[in-house]
Design a protein around this nucleic acid. Structure first.
Length: 390
DNA sequence: AAGAACATCAACCGCTACACT
DNA sequence: GAGTGTAGCGGTTGATGTTCT
């Protein structure tokens, strides 16, 4: 026994990642595929611990990640799921395939928690003066809001509620997976066009949902238009501004336009022709002082073009009218090249049509008639009844 | 204009479950 | 079965940006 530790604490770099480090990491993963994180720092020469590399990849560099503002639909979904699942961010993230658990967690802590508590306090105030139920706030009116959830939990037990939810989700996922096997276009008609079409999801860990979702991993998704917006625009620190990553990629693409597209390495690559390529210099046209000046990147064991690596990884990045730095990620996320990573890193997410309906019908229903039967129907649905979904 | 207060979010830390020997 | 390492998760921190006074 006695495997070496994943990293020695001394000499391990911490803090924000630089473009050079990102390139090294992405290129290595493009070549070898994600996984075996312990070997990544050694083989890339990165002075980072394996954990840090994995986190950087899963949260920021992995294709298919949508960044920027959350849509109302995403927001509502997070609120519902949080009420149902608690702070199981990875589980919640699995229903929002283009969002990372870290992103959702941050968004919850910085936005939604306040929003809900604010609504609750106002609702409480409203209740204090008027016993009638407020119907103008879907968060409060939702029976699955934390407030109501407390009642459910106390009467039934959180674990049981979660189990029921998982079972239901799993069955629904299986149902949808089977129904969409022959109809890959179906998912594009989802009422979640922004984020339900990705074939990626995190948390490769066990779980009912995962096991069923895997059945539709072969489903090919189509490119969708995203409604991403740029984040803080004036960050001077690379790692705090993901725009720079997009710029980096754009820089790659510009250099790449003259090169014929190579076959994408869709497996832990046998693509050895890259190994002796050299890296073209990256130049940006926006006068960004953070321009990476990388001419060659040499791995401990091989040397290959990062340009080609990115090309292979993300496909040809087109310049679009949309200046959103994330649009490139979003579009390329579903490129054939990226599909390798998507399939590797996240199982396919189904259309979840019933879930969608439940989540959003509820909100609209609450808004219009204040009914609260629908959520209870799902949450309190006996196990026997959930079996009817399949 | 300056600085204090607040908001945001990338990254780290510590824990746990699982895999491996 | 025990010991150890790894991957993943959730909580927390701290650097940076933004707004307020």
């Amino acid at each position: 026994m006695g495997r070496p530790p994943c990293c020695d604490k001394e000499g391990v770099k911490k803090g924000p990642w630089t473009p050079e480090e990102d390139i090294l990491l992405v290129s290595y993963i493009q070549e070898h595929g994600p996984g075996n994180w312990r070997a990544v720092p050694t083989n890339t020469g990165l002075l980072r611990c394996s954990k840090s590399c994995r986190l950087r990849w899963t949260n920021y560099l992995r294709p298919g990640i949508k960044r920027g503002n959350f849509t109302d639909q995403e927001e509502k979904m997070i609120i519902h799921l949080q009420a149902l699942l608690g702070n199981r961010w990875a589980a919640i993230a699995s229903y929002l395939p283009q969002r990372t658990d870290n992103d959702i967690k941050n968004y919850w802590n910085t936005h939604l928690k306040k929003k809900i508590s604010k609504s609750q306090s106002s609702d409480h105030h409203h209740h204090h003066h008027n016993s009638s139920r407020s119907s103008d706030n879907c968060f409060l009116s939702s029976p699955s809001s934390p407030e109501n959830n407390h009642t459910i939990s106390s009467s039934r037990g959180q674990w049981e509620r979660r189990l029921q939810t998982d079972i239901h989700m799993a069955k629904q996922a299986l149902c949808d997976a089977l129904s969409t096997m022959d109809n890959t276009q179906k998912s594009t008609t989802s009422i979640f066009p922004d984020f339900m079409n990705s074939s990626t999801t995190s948390s490769p860990k066990k779980g009912l949902l995962l096991s069923t979702q895997k059945q539709c991993q072969t489903t090919t998704t189509t490119t969708t238009t995203t409604t991403t917006t740029s984040s803080s625009s004036s960050s001077s620190i690379y790692a705090s501004s993901t725009e720079n990553i997009a710029r980096l990629l754009q820089g790659w693409s510009k250099n790449k336009t003259t090169c014929p597209k190579k076959e994408h390495s869709s497996s832990a690559s046998t693509d050895n022709h890259n190994h002796h390529s050299t890296l073209e210099r990256v130049d940006y046209d926006n006068g960004d002082e953070q321009k990476p000046k990388i001419d060659h990147v040499v791995f401990s064991n091989n040397q290959f073009s990062k340009n080609e690596a990115f090309q292979s990884l993300f496909g040809t990045i087109e310049s679009t009218e949309d200046n959103s730095p994330y649009s490139d990620f979003s579009h390329q996320a579903v490129s054939p090249e990226a599909s390798f990573f998507e399939q590797e890193s996240k199982p396919c997410t189904t259309t979840l049509s019933v879930l969608e309906k439940w989540l959003f019908d509820d909100c609209s229903m609450q808004q219009h008639c204040g009914s609260q039967t629908q959520d209870h129907d799902l949450i309190d649905m006996p196990l026997q009844e959930t079996a009817d979904f399949v």
